[in-house]
């Protein structure tokens, strides 16, 4: 078994499918914890205000509520949030982090409780030093509480569905006049090359003008030898249009436009 440190948690299902989850690093987790600390402080301030009103009825009861409330909130904030929000606190939500079971299974209440109670040890001696050191040396970036509770903290990126319509938007593709060359292009290009080409096109609007021109020139130069289209098909085509036509040929198998 590979024991090297990794930033991905790979899970293989009994169906033979492998999916990976991006593990959160100690720095991001620490930032999320700072946000949670601010939340706890805010809740405690609110509790103090409520208790001040309770003092009008009984000062002793108010003070008791304040002491016990402080304790319960400090311990219970993480437990309640992570249980109610399926592995997230407010800080984790802001940083797109989530606590999950180490094997990708459902997070159980007992796991949430144990990992949060272990903050007592993980936070020793100050600023989560024990937890930080354990996390840095752990293969899956787990602090002590995570190791005992069999949990990991993952980062999840927002998932967007790619909009393929923007690639051609009904435009004429001169390559499609040559189906045999289109077939040759599909045959010669590797999936990795196709991925690069598609991603370049999808993210083209994020690029500055000069690097954009340079990038598409480099890609087009790589694509041209894969299938040599006649002069009339490529005449007047910019490098970016060449790449766009190629992507259309690769990913859109509809009728000729």
């Amino acid at each position: 078994m590979n024991q090297e440190k990794t930033n991905h948690l790979e899970i293989q299902t009994p169906e033979g499918i492998t999916f990976s989850l991006l593990l959160a690093g100690p720095i991001t987790r620490f930032m999320a914890w700072l946000i949670d600390l601010a939340c706890i402080s805010t809740i405690l301030t609110a509790l103090g205000t409520i208790v001040a009103l309770l003092r009008l009825i009984s000062a002793d009861a108010a003070f008791a509520a304040l002491i016990f409330g402080n304790f319960v909130i400090a311990i219970g904030y993480g437990i309640l949030c992570e249980w109610g929000w399926r592995g997230q606190t407010l800080g984790k939500r802001l940083f797109r982090l989530r606590v999950v079971d180490e094997q990708g299974l459902k997070l159980h209440f007992s796991q949430v409780v144990i990992r949060n109670l272990f903050r007592v040890v993980d936070s020793l001696p100050i600023f989560y030093m024990v937890g930080g050191v354990v996390s840095l040396s752990s293969r899956k970036a787990q602090r002590l509480g995570d190791l005992v509770a069999n949990t990991v903290v993952i980062r999840y990126a927002p998932v967007f569905e790619p909009d393929f319509r923007q690639l051609m938007a009904g435009k004429y593709n001169s390559f499609r006049k040559y189906p045999h060359l289109c077939a040759k292009l599909r045959k010669n290009i590797s999936p990795v090359q196709a991925r690069i080409v598609l991603q370049a096109l999808l993210k083209r609007n994020d690029l500055l003008s000069e690097p954009r021109v340079e990038l598409f020139k480099t890609i087009a130069d790589h694509l041209r030898p894969l299938a040599k289209f006649p002069e009339e098909a490529v005449e007047g085509l910019s490098d970016e249009q060449y790449v766009r036509n190629t992507v259309d040929v690769l990913y859109n198998r509809g009728p000729l436009k």
């Binding site: 899970i11 299902t13 009994p14 499918i17 999916f19 990976s20 989850l21 999950v100 079971d101 990708g104 299974l105 459902k106 159980h108 209440f109 999840y156 990126a157 998932v159 967007f160 569905e161 790619p162 999936p191 990795v192 196709a194 991925r195 598609l198 991603q199």
Partner: peptide, 26 residues
């Protein structure tokens, strides 16, 4: 070769996997 769709599907399968394969009593 579409990483975004792949990520979307991975997230979906990961969630479903957690529900389907969980055998601990809850």
């Amino acid at each position: 070769s579409e990483p975004e769709t792949q990520r979307y599907l991975e997230a979906l399968v990961a969630r479903a996997y957690g529900e389907i394969h969980e055998i601990r009593g809850n």
